[in-house]
Amino acid sequence: MMLARPLHAVAAGIMAIVLGLAWNASAQMQGDTRKPDRKRGALITAQGTAAGAPACAQCHAFNGASDGSGAFPRIAGQSLYYLSKQMRDFTSDVRVNAVMSPIAKALTPDDIADVAAYYAGVNAPFLPLRNSDPALIKRGKELAKVGSASNGIQACDNCHGPSGAGEPPAIPYLAGQYATYIVFELRMWQRGFRKSSPESMAGVARQLNDQEIAAVSAYYEQVQGSAELTTSD
């Protein structure tokens, strides 16, 4: 057992400090001394770049809610660290996608930082939901909050935060993410096409069957807004 240092006192405000520092640390890890320019990011989002990258807003919408089809993920308010890491993964083929890979490769590191900073800072309403099977959502909620003893997998919320709210900067939110997108990405991990965080997500994805993937995705899609995020059950 490890010894905590002699323990004096209260917790007041420490968590806020902790989160703030984690954010700073991640910025340092990128070796990025230039401060991302959100305004320039907004411009790229709306207009694309001279080098040929199309406007992000065409698919992801100017507010990051994307088009609601589920073909494109919701990225509004996802962390700067996470978004820029995914873009770098597309440029290095750690993630491969016929649409995103060429776009990411057309962007400079500064472009990526600026666009990521822009989308990290926007909020967007949730688009109206299609009807999902309540039994499927209930099963998904169990997996998300408790895990599965028979599959040997832990609750998704352990890492993705309460009700999938995210654990920024490293871990993305799932709350309100499109089910179609979550299903697709889990399958990419299962089959080895998505190689980002393989040590954690690939293993988990392989333990899930198609029905469980559908269930957990359906659950997270309908977690929208603060009311659900603050329930503790």
């Binding site: 895990g147 040997g152 832990q154 919320d157 352990n158 503790s232």
Partner: peptide
């Protein structure tokens, strides 16, 4: 057991 007893939060 790990599931369900040890799960977060």
């Amino acid at each position: 057991f790990t599931v369900p007893d040890f799960q977060s939060p």
